[in-house]
């Protein structure tokens, strides 16, 4: 559905995106993760036809974005990270003016405006001036606008930026519903829990490079060369744990966290069994031993270094 091949985007001497290739299949909700300055917005803007890349090929539904941008726009919904609105228009007028740009039939447009307002829970604001809406409402209005022409593909760039927690939750729910409706969605964010909940695949970018991409579970796996165990020795015998394990070869790292110890060991069941045996033999009384689940956030932190392009 969305195909990016060897994409390079430059701003003068600054290379924002370095040879990124990515395939987003039809119906996928694909998250684009990365620190600020990683190149996410540049990539999305190039897909929306707002940037001319230095090199590479972009296509949506098999249509070349650079070669035939107007054809692509018919089935593309785009929500930028920063956007303005026409303050003196009412919500209905705002949506109506954009609907007309897509040549939507007036009767269908009226019906469609009602649908998207219901979907984004803005029905009560239909006659309100856009300038008077809160930031969260404007975000939802922008999403409503991007859905007006019922696009197959949605590009959402930091849709929840600047929105309060409730607004973020609501936007997440909306994206999840759109995903359930088989829309192909590429959504960028640096707030990982947002993406972990709604995306079935993610791509992690840093310094313009694609660090990892694939299904969420697979990405988490890529970033998990070790197993993380949280150990709580009875009697606060943290030092004793250190002594017992100081020559334990599969141990990668040991970190004290109050009365607990975080142990990073080679990711094998045998290693865990051997670790427990050694602790018991060394006289450490184990209060609890739990495995820490490595989620997307953990994967992200492991795969990136917080460097800018």
């Amino acid at each position: 559905m969305i195909s990016i091949d060897d994409l390079v985007i430059c701003y003068g001497d600054l290379v924002a995106v370095r040879g990124v290739s990515l395939e987003v299949p039809t119906g996928a909700v694909y998250g684009l993760v990365g620190p600020n300055g990683a190149g996410k917005t540049s990539l999305i803007r190039a897909l929306a036809g707002l940037l001319v890349p230095e090199r590479g090929r972009l296509s949506i539904r098999g249509i070349d974005v650079q070669g035939n941008p107007r054809a692509v726009r018919r089935f593309l919904g785009y929500m930028p990270d920063f956007f303005g609105v026409y303050d003196h228009l009412t919500v209905h007028e705002y949506l109506e003016s954009f609907g007309q740009l897509y040549d939507l039939h007036p009767a269908w447009l009226t019906d469609r405006i009602r649908q998207v307002l219901e979907f984004t829970d803005l029905t009560g604001k239909v006659d309100a001036e856009v300038g008077g809406l809160s930031r969260g409402m404007k975000q939802r209005l922008c999403l409503a606008r991007s859905l007006l022409h019922d696009p197959d593909v949605l590009l959402l760039d930091e849709p929840a930026s600047g929105v309060d927690p409730r607004g973020r939750y609501e936007l997440r729910q909306l994206i999840a519903q759109l995903g359930a409706a088989r829309k192909t969605i590429l959504v960028s964010s640096h707030i990982l829990p947002e993406l972990a909940d709604v995306c079935n695949s993610v791509a992690i970018m840093e310094r313009g490079n694609l660090v990892a991409c694939g299904p969420v579970a697979s990405i988490s796996g890529q970033a998990e060369p070790v197993r993380i165990l949280n150990l709580r020795p009875l009697g606060g015998e943290v030092e004793r744990v250190r002594e017992v394990l100081h020559d334990f070869a599969p141990l990668r790292q040991i970190t004290e966290r109050g009365n607990e110890v975080e142990l990073q060991v080679a990711d094998r069941d045998e290693v865990v069994a051997e670790l427990v045996e050694r602790l018991v033999a060394g006289g450490v009384r184990i209060g609890s031993l739990t495995e820490q689940r490595t989620d997307l956030e953990e994967a992200y932190l492991r795969l990136t270094h917080g460097e800018l392009a």
């Binding site: 930028p80 956007f83 606008r145």
Partner: peptide, 14 residues
């Protein structure tokens, strides 16, 4: 300047 042109540019309007 007000970032409305981006949105207009992504519509079929020439």
């Amino acid at each position: 300047e007000q970032k409305t042109l981006d949105i207009l540019t992504t519509t079929p309007l020439s």
